[in-house]
Design a protein around this nucleic acid. Structure first.
Lengths: 150, 150
DNA sequence: TAGAACCTTCGAGTGCACTCGAAGCAAGCG
DNA sequence: CGCTTGCTTCGAGTGCACTCGAAGGTTCTA
């Protein structure tokens, strides 16, 4: 259950993500800020709004992030790139916290997200085609400049 | 120069875009709003901030958008999808207004944009891979449920 | 000729995702 | 022991891209 290839905690964890330096499992908030590029402020804010599936604390109350948390933050970072609203990510985090009986809901949510991402990719490829077209036009215009005198 | 396959005005115009209904060339603001999904407010705002390369007016001062303007708005819509800040689009619009000697600058701007778009696509594809992985995990977990009793 | 659509200018409001600072205190480390 | 880091709560500020409304007027269309 510890080294199983699937740790369900973060809903399964693919490749790492951010530069994961040390080989341990209890990071201070400043370290996490450094690895992720987020500020401590933002990390606390994520927790406040329910975007972090329970962060551990030291016996004196200081946050101790685990590698799992870093995985999660990596995933959140990816979702952010897709333009997914934070509220939706919070929803997914809630499902995780609620346990196994939310598997189906989680899967559906991920599938919906995947559809969105595919749509966004298609849109961007469309845009890319337009850009290619215009760039090609400019390139052509410059190959045949305005009647070189003589 | 009129039916040339390249009308340089919008920096070359690829396929149309939004539902282009009528066959004419002078649209009222309400029509443009309907075609593009933007509000009249937003269209006037675009003009104010310099995002429209000069919109025609009727002899009484009402805006008369042309097909070219619609093409431009279509292009702007695409750029918006890429997350390009409005200020950058304004920059491109400025270059257009400044005439032929900005060809090179325009081309460079478009090329930089294209690089961005490609990067975004790569990021999204990365995200897609993560989503695929997780969805696959959930699908697997559901195929092998938690020890069916009996 | 009435009502709808347009114009201008001005300025305030919205939603999102942070982002920051301050106050007042507890803990870690060198 | 002192300095850095961390904790909490609170609340204000930022940047972007709209978005809306109102006032006061002109123009268009049926």
């Amino acid at each position: 259950m510890e080294n199983a290839s699937e740790r369900t905690s973060v809903g399964a964890a693919p490749p790492p993500a951010h530069p994961r330096p040390e080989g341990q499992d209890r990071y201070a908030i400043s370290e996490v800020a450094a690895f992720t590029g987020l500020t401590a402020h933002t990390l606390r804010w994520y927790e406040r709004i329910g975007l972090m599936p329970h962060v551990d604390r030291s016996h004196t109350g200081q946050r101790r992030f685990t590698n799992r948390d870093l995985d999660w933050l990596g995933f959140v970072g990816k979702l952010r790139l897709t333009g997914m609203p934070v509220a939706d990510m919070v929803r997914y985090a809630e499902l995780l916290r609620e346990g196994e009986h939310t598997f189906e809901a989680r899967q559906e949510l991920l599938e919906a997200t995947r559809r969105d991402v595919r749509t966004r990719i298609a849109e961007l490829q469309d845009t890319l085609a337009v850009l290619d077209f215009k760039i090609e036009f400019y390139a052509g215009a410059r190959r045949v400049p305005e009647r070189p005198s003589a």
